[in-house]
Simulated assay, not measured.
Amino acid sequence: MIGGLVAIGTLLVAGLIGVLLRRRDGRVRTKNTATVPDDVRAVLDPRAEVTLVQLSTTFCAPCRHARVILADLADKTDGLAHADIDLTDRPELAQRLAVLRTPTTLAVDSQGAEILRVGGVPRRESLLAALRPHLSA
């Protein structure tokens, strides 16, 4: 009897954690305008108002999906560019950027300030809505 109750309790806790994690996935969070490290500044497109910097790892399946969304969004939006940084062999950069999961997308303005970040696969419409104030077009 007690084993059954423990199993049911465990399933409820695991289900609640799953729901909470799913709700956070792809949510746009605005950041303070801290300047990003030089490793990130090196990949910024100097012609773009905002560069979407995707932080990925080699064996990350959701990273491929995020790459398709971000590249397409950058291709179809004036003033927006997309770059990718592989963190597989760069744990020190992941630590400096406080990246806890991949994919993580940073939106960085032309001065190198992080304006927002998305953990997980970004939701196209909410990301675009958050970027509009930072794009002139």
Rank of each mutant, 00 (worst) to 15 (best):
I2P: 00
D72W: 04
P133D: 04
L128K: 10
R90V: 00
P133R: 02
T30M: 15
I2M: 06
A74Y: 11
T10H: 04
G79K: 06
V43N: 09
R41Y: 08
T102P: 01
T33E: 13
G112R: 05
A81E: 12
G4C: 10
D25I: 02
S110A: 11
V19K: 14
L44G: 02
G3K: 15
A14H: 06
D89M: 06
K31T: 14
I115W: 10
L11V: 14
G18M: 07
T58L: 00
V99Y: 01
A34T: 13
R124E: 13
V6P: 07
L52F: 11
D25L: 02
A48S: 13
I17S: 09
P62C: 06
I85E: 11
L135P: 03
R124N: 04
A137N: 11
L100D: 05
A98Y: 09
C60V: 00
L55N: 07
G112Y: 08
L73D: 11
G119M: 07
I8T: 04
T30Y: 13
P46E: 07
C63I: 01
R123M: 09
A94M: 06
E114P: 05
P122R: 01
P91Q: 04
R29S: 13
D72V: 00
R41N: 13
G4R: 14
T88Y: 03
E114K: 10
P133K: 01
L70A: 06
R67P: 07
L106A: 00
A81Y: 10
L127Q: 08
A137H: 15
I115C: 11
A42L: 15
L52N: 07
R23E: 12
L93S: 10
G119P: 03
L21D: 14
V68F: 08
V40E: 03
A74F: 05
G26C: 09
P103T: 01
T33G: 12
V53W: 14
L70R: 04
I115H: 11
V13L: 11
L80N: 02
G120W: 08
R64V: 13
C63W: 00
T57R: 00
R23D: 11
L131Q: 09
R117N: 10
H82S: 15
G112P: 06
